[in-house]
Structure formats: C-alpha cells, structure tokens
Design a protein around this nucleic acid. Structure first.
Lengths: 265, 265
DNA sequence: GCAAATTTGTTCGTATGTATT
DNA sequence: CAATACATACGAACAAATTTG
C-alpha cells in the first residue's frame, strides 16, 4: 500500500497547519516554491495536494494571490429551545434579536417577501394537509455584521388570512410576533412544536446568498419547525437554513442553569 | 465570464442525474466514452468534471468498475428530546433501542471501553471543573443493520467512583441507565441537560469507523450533552458523533402530538 | 492609469500503476 | 492471465486574476 505523493505533500502541509507553523490566515508557499520543496514534483502534483487540503476545508486558494490557511469563524450560537407557547426560539422574532445583541453582533434583516402558492409536497406533508392546499409564505434573510447568516421561510394556511389574519399578507414585521397575532385574531394558540434537523449540501440559491465556495464543501443545516395548536393540528411550518461553517445550536431540556452562551470549540 | 469545459460537462451530467436519466445506483459512461461524447475533451478534463460531481456528493467512483450515481440513504432519525430526569433521548439507553426497533432496524453495540484520564480542555470546560480534573470515560460504538451509525463517549467525574459508583468502571452495560444508577448510589439526580450541536469535518478515526470517503466530504454532526444535577452543577458530559449523510434529528417542545417518525426528505 | 510580474486556473498530451472483472 | 477502468504523475501551454512598479 503506497501513499501517493500528493497525499504525502498534503499530509506534510497539514501537519504544519495543525502545529501552527502555518498560522491561520497565513499564506502557503506558491506552487512553484512547493515544487522545489517537495523533490521537484510536478506542478500538477502540488496542485493535487492543495486540492486535497481544500476539500478538507483547511486551506482556500485565491486566484492571483495564493493559497491561505482558513481562519476559524467565530460561530453564531442559536438556542432552539424556547417557550413553546410563543415560539420564540430557533432564531425567531424577539429571541433572535436578544441572542444576537448579547453577543455584540449587529443584526440586519431583509424585507419580508410574501408569496401565495400551492404548497410543495414537503410542505403539505409537514402541515398534514391534502396536496393542492394553498399557503402563504413569508420569507426573510438575515445578516450578522454584514455576513449572510440564515434564511427563513414560514408557511401558514391561506385559510388564516381569509378568516381575518390579514396582516400575514403584509411584507412588514409583525412586532408582537405571528404567534401572538394569530392568538389575538383567530384564537389559535401555539402549544408546542417539533423541530426536524438535517444536514445536506446547499442548492444554488443558498450557495449564492451565503457566498459559499461553489464546490459544495460547506453543508447546510436545515431546521423545519412544525408548530401545533391546542388540538394537535399543525398551524405553521418554518424552514430555516444555516450554513454549517458559522452556526451552532443549543437545546435545553429540564432545569439548566443560566450561563454564558459564548462557549466555543 | 466563461464557464470552463469541465464545469459544463459536470452540469450536463448533473442535469441527467437530477432528471433521473441517470438513475441512483446507475453507472455513468466510462471516462473514454465521456471523452467521445463531449467534443473529444481530454481524459483529464472529463476526470475534472467527475471530480466536481464527486465533491458535490452526487457520484462516487470505484477503481476498476466505474463511476456510479450515489443512492440516498434512508436516514436514521434520533429524537433528542426526552425525559430530562432520565436522560433517555439522544440515542441513550432504552430510548435508543426502542427508536431503532420501531424502524425495523437491527441495532448492535460495541463493548464499552472505559478509560480514566485527565480531562481534555473541552471536557473540563463543559463540566465546569478546573483543568487537571480526572474523569472516567465510557466509549461505545453503535451499528444499525451492520452499518456504523454513531460513536458515543460519556465523561463522569472520577470522584463519583471513589464515592461508591464503582460500576462506572466496569465495561458492562448498566441496564437501569447510569442516571438511575447515580441516583441510587450517590443520590445525584439529573434535573436537565443542555445539548450543543455543531457540524464539522471528520477526523481520521471517524472517517475510518464510519467508512467515510477519505476526502472529508461527509460532515460529522457532533452533539455534546451536559447534564445538570439539582444544584445546577454539571454531572456528566456525553459527546455523540453522527455522520451527517445518514442521520437526522427531531426535537419536541411543549405539546406535540404522537405521530409517525418515518418522515423522509 | 497602465504595463509587467506573479500566481492560480484550465486544458491538452502521455506514460505508468492499481483494482476489478 | 488478459481486458477494462480508474489513479497517479509528469510536462507543457495559455488564460485569468491580482499585485506591484
């Protein structure tokens, strides 16, 4: 079992990165310098080694500049647990803003985009409704310190609007929260929710918005929250997507002491 | 803005995969056939296209056989929420076994490996103890239908053992659960826990055990569970790792109706 | 602001090695 | 053992992005 040369070069560079000889943010030798260093290997072989390290997420190359050791991103931490009756948690509404400011970040939110459409198969399934059901969706993009941080889409039955919850159709923030608004307007009370979490590769939209490298190396964390009313009926679905390279999550159960949320890796 | 040829080829093949012209599990044309098909491109160019699709997780190549469209894995779904006082949830003990059997899978668990050592920095931090603290760790590997599914390591203060919880040192399962055992033996009651979830690239051990492609394409979901006793003191830390390609998670808050757990993507 | 130098990106060709059937 | 198919490695040329003089 021979180890290919490009892997040996990659391993050597990896060692230098992990021991700190090559500091985060620092530049690797150029391809030509690496050629000279490693037994006059071909430029393509050196490039294969760099490609390998790129796939491992250890380095990134910038055309015309060089190859750099990637710097760890200070992750944003979202608490998924919250009061089941308000739904504040998981980056929704007020809870989102307080989490963010406690970490001295500057949040920014896009305008809300409202759409009315027949629900997609995944949506009707999670809402427990027949296919063809019409829903209203509210889509929002979120930034922290100017960095794209998450995208969020909430789906409500169009029925809610016809029964009087007309502000759902307005592309404005609902300051008291949609949960409170639905309780006030329609007497529909959120009693709990189920989060479903999966990790997958980004689609084109997500890669663009989050400015991910187009090679699909950075995964997306998708969290679908189905909220239930007092009758155990699904009342809304919120789908949030987060790039895995800059997001971590906390979930509390039972009695957990208050403490700093600033724990890092 | 020109699109390189290898990307055009990759896009064309990607389209064929997504429209089902190339079925999951099916074999792509050989490199030579692809050469002929795409304007007599060089074999290296065709290989670059395949490399790109590999990075996106759409295909996998097997030496001597060919390149195949990857098949989606039926994901295993773990419920993280559970009774905070037993800690059953998140794949621990009884809950794990019932989850698994409800999905008609065959679970298997490795022997437990017990180690005593000075706690690593991340461990002392999450346990809220000074560095140099001695802990006992219990490590276990889990399989479903013969497929490696998760690895789990629990850390307890060595102090627990000296105070009488000697079965922690035994590489045997503790049938009533360690939470119950600690309550019975030491009167330490688990009142809640905090889960911390992050996604990262696998290390060498993980890649080997989960049989992941060695290029770091499949991410690892790491869930650290810190459990607290009645005084709000951390009493144990459980670190679970799951390969992201075959695991999804559910978390319930408040009142959520019982329902099938077999929801897929 | 422009031109040259530097550095990475793409594409070709060729030869040989290794794994599987 | 032979045929097939992917893996590694070399060399070369030109393109594109960025920095430097």
């Amino acid at each position: 079992m021979v180890t290919p040369m490009y892997r040996q070069i990659a391993e050597d560079l990896r060692g230098q990165i992990e021991t700190g000889q090559l500091a985060p943010g620092g530049r690797l030798p150029t391809e030509l310098e690496l050629r000279a260093k490693y037994n006059n290997a071909s430029r393509n072989t050196v490039r294969d080694a760099i490609k390998w390290l790129t796939a491992l997420g250890l380095v990134a190359t910038r055309p015309g500049q060089g190859t750099f050791v990637v710097e760890k991103i200070d992750p944003f931490i979202t608490t998924l647990s919250g009061d089941p009756k308000t739904g504040f948690g998981g980056g929704e509404g007020t809870r989102y803003r307080s989490e963010v400011s406690s970490r001295k970040r500057t949040p920014k939110t896009s305008r809300i985009r409202v759409e009315i459409q027949e629900a997609a198969p995944e949506v009707v399934e999670k809402l427990g409704k027949p296919s063809g059901t019409v829903v209203i969706s509210r889509h929002e993009k979120r930034y922290l310190d100017g960095t794209p941080w998450s995208m969020l889409t909430s789906f409500y039955l169009m029925d809610f609007v016809t029964r009087g919850a007309v502000r759902l159709t307005s592309p404005e923030d609902i300051p008291e929260g949609t949960v409170q608004y639905l309780a006030d307007t329609l007497g529909i009370h959120q009693m709990g929710y189920r989060d479903w979490l999966a990790v997958r590769t980004p689609d084109g939209n997500e890669a663009e918005f989050f400015r991910l490298p187009p090679d699909g190396r950075t995964s997306i964390i998708e969290i679908s929250r189905t909220a239930f009313d007092g009758n155990g009926q699904p009342m809304r679905l919120t789908v949030s997507v987060y790039p895995a390279d800059r997001n971590q999550f906390l979930i509390d159960f039972g009695q957990v002491p208050e403490q700093e949320k600033d724990q890092e890796t």
